[in-house]
């Protein structure tokens, strides 16, 4: 019987080694370990053995079973692995075929620039203020220290509705509205649409957008203005950006400045973007004129403030390398989808 068992083991081992499919293995399992299998039938004959032989043969039979089972399991595993590998090979696809995209729309590039600006200033404790585009001459000009018939009005070619109503030429009237309706401390930015009677061309549009900033508090200094604009310029144009203030004149600020940023194209060495200057003018700023503060009911002996304003189109053109302002309002889908 011992020989018989050893024979089963040897033949099982041999057959298992050559089995090619899971089915063959299953057949072998039945052949050797099944109810009518070879090993089972050998064990059935155990009753004929003596009491001494029985445990010895029993143990051997068990060993043979464990051996066959473990070989069988291993063979199944190996074969399954091989089959999986084969399947994976068959499932190869062309990964250069196009992906399936969700068709997102895009925010307009001008909105994206305003979003960025908003984010910078929200983070510095500013709120967002708004005002009407068809505006009283009073808020647009007079409260901003630009009396009727003042030569400064020439600088901003104004669309008039009538003698007292204009299309706002800048977002500055929102400053007056905020100061007249809110007590310091004030920190706001005012994004919005403004109008000047410029004919349409690659760099001019009668409708464009500005973002105005206003801070009024006790002890606000021009140093605070410089620092704030520096942060702003770095966020918008990169960490290495420098700013430069040039004295200028705006009726609503005193002192006033035009602000240049170091050219993002060349870093200051001179290129096409900055026309060789190394600097690009990006905004106007200054300390809020005491006349404006007084007009808006704020005592300039107690409070001071700064204000700044910038053109959104200009920044967007710089940022996205857009060379014609008309693209913004033409709204060609192939343009809009690029941003």
């Amino acid at each position: 019987m011992k020989e018989q068992l050893n024979g089963i083991q040897a033949s099982a081992e041999k057959e298992l080694a050559t089995a090619q499919s899971i089915q063959e293995l299953e057949n072998l399992r039945v052949k050797y370990l099944g109810k009518k299998g070879e090993l089972t039938s050998v064990l059935r004959g155990m009753g004929a053995l003596s009491a001494e032989e029985r445990p010895v043969i029993g143990q051997l039979a068990n060993e043979v079973r464990v051996f066959i089972e473990s070989r069988l399991d291993k063979a199944v595993k190996d074969l399954a692995g091989k089959e999986r590998t084969l399947k994976l090979k068959q499932e190869i696809i062309d990964i250069t075929m196009p992906g399936k995209k969700a068709n997102f729309g895009r925010r307009h590039p001008l909105t994206q620039v305003v979003d960025e600006i908003k984010e910078v200033f929200l983070g510095m404790g500013y709120q967002i203020a708004e005002g009407p585009e068809v505006e009283l001459d009073y808020f647009n000009f007079e409260a901003m220290n630009i009396p009727k018939n003042h030569p400064s009005r020439d600088v901003q070619d104004t669309f008039y509705i009538d003698d007292n109503v204009v299309l706002r030429t800048h977002t500055s009237p929102v400053q007056a509205r905020v100061m007249k309706s809110q007590n310091p401390p004030i920190r706001v930015i005012c994004p919005g649409r403004v109008y000047r009677s410029d004919e349409v061309d690659a760099t001019h549009s009668p409708v464009f957008h500005q973002v105005e900033g206003l801070v009024v508090d006790k002890g606000v200094t021009m140093g605070d203005l410089v620092g704030t604009l520096q942060v702003f310029a770095k966020v918008l144009f990169g960490e290495n950006t420098k700013i430069r203030l040039r004295p200028h004149h705006f009726p609503f600020t005193e002192p006033s400045a035009e602000v240049d940023v170091s050219c993002w194209g060349c870093g200051g060495s001179g290129c096409r973007i900055c026309k060789g200057e190394g600097w690009v003018e990006i905004l106007g700023a200054g300390m809020v004129s005491p006349k404006v503060l007084r007009e808006c009911g704020i005592d300039p002996n107690v409070y001071s403030g700064f204000a700044f304003g910038l053109g959104v189109e200009r920044v967007a053109m710089a940022r996205f390398n857009i060379d014609d302002m008309r693209l913004f309002t033409e709204n060609d889908v192939r343009f809009l989808k690029q941003f």
Binding site: G123, Q127, P185, V220, D224, V226, G227, V231
Partner: peptide
């Protein structure tokens, strides 16, 4: 103008930078 040292409204009352 560019000799003015930049500062950042230090020591001022906090304001809330939130959207309505």
């Amino acid at each position: 103008y560019n000799n003015i040292k930049p500062t950042l409204l230090t020591g001022k009352e906090m304001t809330r930078g939130i959207k309505s």
